[in-house]
Design a protein around this nucleic acid. Structure first.
Lengths: 137, 137
DNA sequence: TATCTAATCGTAACCATTACAATTACATCT
DNA sequence: AGATGTAATTGTAATGGTTACGATTAGATA
């Protein structure tokens, strides 16, 4: 997902192109190796837009996640975001607790357990693996 | 895991038996169907110990989790706890977003993906399924 | 350019969690 | 039972991420 594509996706829904929003997308495209905490996004944007507010950061991150441009997870009580991986199908992530970088894991356990949840309505699931990547070992 | 067993486990490590700690364990044994938020534990204990402090609740919950008496997870940015399931082997949970009750899922995806993480050190993993249980549907 | 509305800013509130000094309670030993 | 050592609790405040909102600004469209 490149920036223009994302901006256009928003445009179609009536959302405007703003410098701040563009910058947020830039940050993710510059470093799309792993999940980034909201705090880090804020700090990064402040370099260009010193007066940027929390409202702007969170509103945009949540909007982008809503629109499937980003995907999010919660690590250590902080919300983290990364570009949504739409290059391949549904999958999960190994997340390095050292550097935050992720590695795709092309396996979804849901296929294996569907029948064991008869009578239950499954809305969502989370499968994440935590550890150290080769670079951090 | 009954209360006495848990208390003894702590005793062996030099931790003392206190009324508050006992009450915490009681609460979990009274309602061991699902994850309980820390906030709820606090409220419940306050009925018996009006002056109980945050420190006491969190210290005990974390201690009990550390000692494998409880297990914990984070839902909606809040820490939740439940009795540790030691009656059967390693497994995961379906968690009802309506009532919080859980259902054990006897399948761990880690077995299937071990080989795909060569060179990575896996420390932990999380697999949770969210939805509505039959009772909440 | 006028207008409409989304978006941002500045700031404060919110809320779960964490921290800590002072006090109290538990367990053990004599 | 009383003294002692240490864990545990209390009371309260700080922390930190997130959320909220009125006032202002800036895209987009005609």
């Amino acid at each position: 997902m490149n920036i223009e594509k994302a901006i256009n996706k928003l445009k179609e829904k009536g959302y405007k192109r703003t410098k701040q929003r563009e910058r947020i997308l830039e940050i993710f495209s510059e470093q799309d190796q792993g999940y980034i905490p909201a705090k880090t996004i804020l700090k990064e944007i402040q370099k260009d837009f010193p007066g940027v507010s929390y409202d702007t950061i969170y509103r945009n991150l949540y909007l982008l996640a809503e629109e499937q441009v980003l995907e999010s997870t919660e690590l250590d009580g902080e919300k983290h975001f990364r570009f949504h991986c739409d290059t391949h199908g549904h999958h999960h992530h190994f997340i390095c607790t050292g550097c935050g970088k992720t590695k795709a894991v092309e396996f979804c356990p849901m296929d294996k357990i569907a029948q064991s949840l008869d009578g239950y309505a499954v809305d969502d699931h989370k499968f994440e693996i935590y550890g150290k990547c080769p670079g951090c070992l």
